[in-house]
Design a binder for these strands. Structure first.
Lengths: 224, 224
DNA sequence: TAGATTGTTAATCGATTAACAATC
DNA sequence: TAGATTGTTAATCGATTAACAATC
């Protein structure tokens, strides 16, 4: 993991972890103490062997016949993702999307705490949105360093994306959650994760097109 | 594509298409008429052979030495994704995220037009947000059928997700863009695409953890 | 005990990358 | 022409799925 030779966890598996976490919490809510891969897989429309492999990454071992203990498994998944302790984040760009993220309660589940929003527009600076202060972007570097903030959420317009990224990097931010469609350039010691809503919508569009196409021209004349 | 035997396009390739589209528009803006895979790949940090294969899906052929004509390629990618003509959509759940999506101008690039928002909360019904009317959720089925709306955007709280999905499906909606973390159940003739921001943040979290871990314990004592 | 479920090793599948002839 | 770039076929790589012994 630390050098280029050590291999990391499979990305698709990592992306599935929050699904498990969400379902496990549901199971806990219903007061059950154990759950099997079969049940998890069924509910999430996944393969049970895949679920077993994914959960093995957390180091938790199950018991034949009964499955996994829910509570320790939840803790292990949260620990695996680093969601067991809170990470402070700064959000830059208080447009409508930025505003929405500032107000999203669900981030607490991920151990994510947006502690302030930043803006260039003077009319927004000084406002309080969803209980969070909007500060001058100029003050970000000083505050990020002093408060050891490692995560930046980027919700600025596309044309400002790289500039703000450079500011974040210079401020010691180590991880950027990028909601813009821009391909950001950062040094190797900084990680970027792109949300890419367009990619998601592309899949939806194509599937819808195929769906409609198929209904207009069914498989063959032999189909009754 | 239409039957279960016919194979569809690789999903990772489909997800990259909007990246190409965005870069191609940038290239066009700069007045260039041709572009090579090498250039596209370099800018998007991809492999050039991969780019060539992806673009081949659109049916466009390039010319050795010069690459691809930008304008026809843009049109081909848009046609491939079905983004060349507008698709009307209804959005359900006018919380902060729903509100943000209602106001997002960028969707026009995807041929997506949100024509109205729907809500259960009486205090929100009748409002106009970003120029879009907020209507009573009860009126969705009638309107969706009359206006032949095929796309639904789901931004309701988790506990309402399945219920609203059922309503959409009953109203003839064929594609659901799901912003909730809920695993939706739909009939086979309806497509669902999950946005899963949690998956994206999971990747960011894990990478950040690895990054920090590596700095605390470098590769070995031989490193100077 | 019998049967469900685990963990692990092997087989399959699909996507990425490499190799290379064709061509502008 | 020479060299860059295309399109396509083959090789590699990684993730998913299958098989199966171990076990509660």
């Amino acid at each position: 993991m630390c050098d280029d030779t050590g291999k990391s966890y499979p990305l698709p598996s990592v992306r599935r972890m929050p699904m498990y976490l969400q379902y496990l919490k549901q199971v806990r809510e219903r007061g059950r103490c154990c759950v099997s891969c079969t049940h998890i897989a069924e509910h999430l429309h996944l393969n049970s062997i895949q679920v077993r492999k994914d959960l093995a990454m957390t180091g938790i071992v199950g018991r034949p016949k009964t499955g996994y203990e829910v509570e320790p498994l939840i803790e292990a998944v949260e620990e695996f993702l680093g969601w067991n302790n809170t990470h402070d984040a700064f959000l830059v760009g208080v447009g409508s999307l930025g505003r929405a993220l500032l107000g999203y309660e669900g981030f607490h589940e991920y151990g994510l705490e947006i502690i302030a929003g930043f803006e260039k527009a003077v009319d927004k600076i000084g406002q309080t949105i969803h209980g969070k202060e909007i500060l001058d972007i100029e003050t970000l570097p000083g505050l990020a360093r002093r408060m050891h903030v490692q995560i930046g959420i980027l919700t600025v317009p596309a044309q400002a994306a790289q500039e703000v990224t450079d500011l974040m990097v210079g401020a010691g931010i180590r991880a950027i959650w990028n909601y813009t469609p821009v391909q950001l350039d950062v040094p190797p010691a900084v990680v970027v994760e792109d949300v890419r809503m367009a990619a998601s919508f592309a899949v939806l569009s194509l599937r819808l097109t195929e769906l409609v196409k198929c209904e207009k021209s069914p498989v063959g004349p032999s189909v009754d």
